[in-house]
Design a protein around this nucleic acid. Sequence first.
DNA 1: CTTCCCAAAATTTGATCATATTCTGATACA
DNA 2: TGTATCAGAATATGATCAAATTTTGGGAAG
Lengths: 231, 231
Amino acid sequence: MVRKPTAAAVAAPSDPAPVPEHEMVYRRLRAQILHGEMAPGQAVTIQGLAAELGAGMTPVREAIRRLIAESALVFQGNRRVSVPVLRPDNLDELILLRRVLDTELARRAAGRATPSDIDALEAIDIALDAAITRGDVRGYLAENHRFHTAIYDLAAAPILAGLAEGLWLRFGPSLRVVCGRLGTQNLPDRHKEAIAAWRRCDADAVAAAMERDVVQGMEVIRAVLAKGRFD
Amino acid sequence: MVRKPTAAAVAAPSDPAPVPEHEMVYRRLRAQILHGEMAPGQAVTIQGLAAELGAGMTPVREAIRRLIAESALVFQGNRRVSVPVLRPDNLDELILLRRVLDTELARRAAGRATPSDIDALEAIDIALDAAITRGDVRGYLAENHRFHTAIYDLAAAPILAGLAEGLWLRFGPSLRVVCGRLGTQNLPDRHKEAIAAWRRCDADAVAAAMERDVVQGMEVIRAVLAKGRFD
DNA sequence: CTTCCCAAAATTTGATCATATTCTGATACA
DNA sequence: TGTATCAGAATATGATCAAATTTTGGGAAG
């Protein structure tokens, strides 16, 4: 019954391909979208990506399908695929969803976080501040995402966390545009309020702080989106 | 070299491939999962499905990838794929999500539905009642899903609707198990309350009725899930 | 003599690639 | 302006390789 994977678990020092190539391509493309390295509206071709990433067509194809299913890419009816352009009415829905999901996840995380978990969150927030004062857009986006993802992981609610994580893919491309216009100085950051509330074990205050953080962040996107038409 | 551009253009009476094959396979598998034709925990193999559906490996492969991305199927670490088994803690999250999404979508739909839209909803509900009294499980599942989907479409909120629709894939396989144990008689149906409220243009009452409908339906699943262990 | 367990062959299944076919969009020509 | 042709890209097939599970056979212990 109980099987002992004799050699597979020991994992030889030279691991040639523990994760398949379509998974690697997926993660890479996902990271690019998340960090705003692909412009909204940009066309995506299988053969182009295959050549660019030095991968075969089949793995690239599967990665693209997966990203389309997550709405990180859009299939344009004919056989074209592109990075989606965020519209103001879409943003309204995203704000509503993040208000619900991020606050619920933060509330659950508040009931489960150990002091060392909170220390880890604070460490991420410090790195985030450093990126802001450094004017490092890429670093800000990465640390901010890491902060929220850490909360998702603490909540022990895989379905909610998966949906919340999926939302980031939708506004990722636009985030880069926003930061490119505003710089990192004027970005809101309610993380310190949340951390303080966490230390007090005040779940309601944590949720409230996260809601403010999310709404303010999304409103910044909305403001830039409404002002500049980048088609 | 020698091309036959005419063959496709003449378009025989039976349209051979207006939609690509991977899309056909996807829709078919999705429908099977949604209608509970695949048992929770059942293994899914590419080659098995390819043989069963008379399709090539590549289209089946892409359809499975897509369904995995929607969490309609699960990738089990090694390279095996199976229909997910719903656990009670997952159900808690699904109930929370459906309460939020279905009520919000119903509220938005309430502000936009025309009288003929409401008539269409009522027609679906009548067909649903007929399926219940007939004891037709398959028909009940189909009409119930159609009812809620029609509301999603009316709400004009594509992101919310997409997420709500995606949730159905998660409890679809279990729904069939539930109906197999209970029959169709004891299933709750708050649709008539909702339709009456719709006619009064009372958005709050519509949302409240939908919330009761959703919660009662999901609680039925929870009760059966907690009672019978079907592994 | 039977039973259990471990190891290695055999089968099944997934991953990747090269190739052929079909479709879309655009350009050139009338 | 409208039509025909062409290049480019996506879809689909089958073959090939790699990995994992299952089966099978032999030996040791009871």
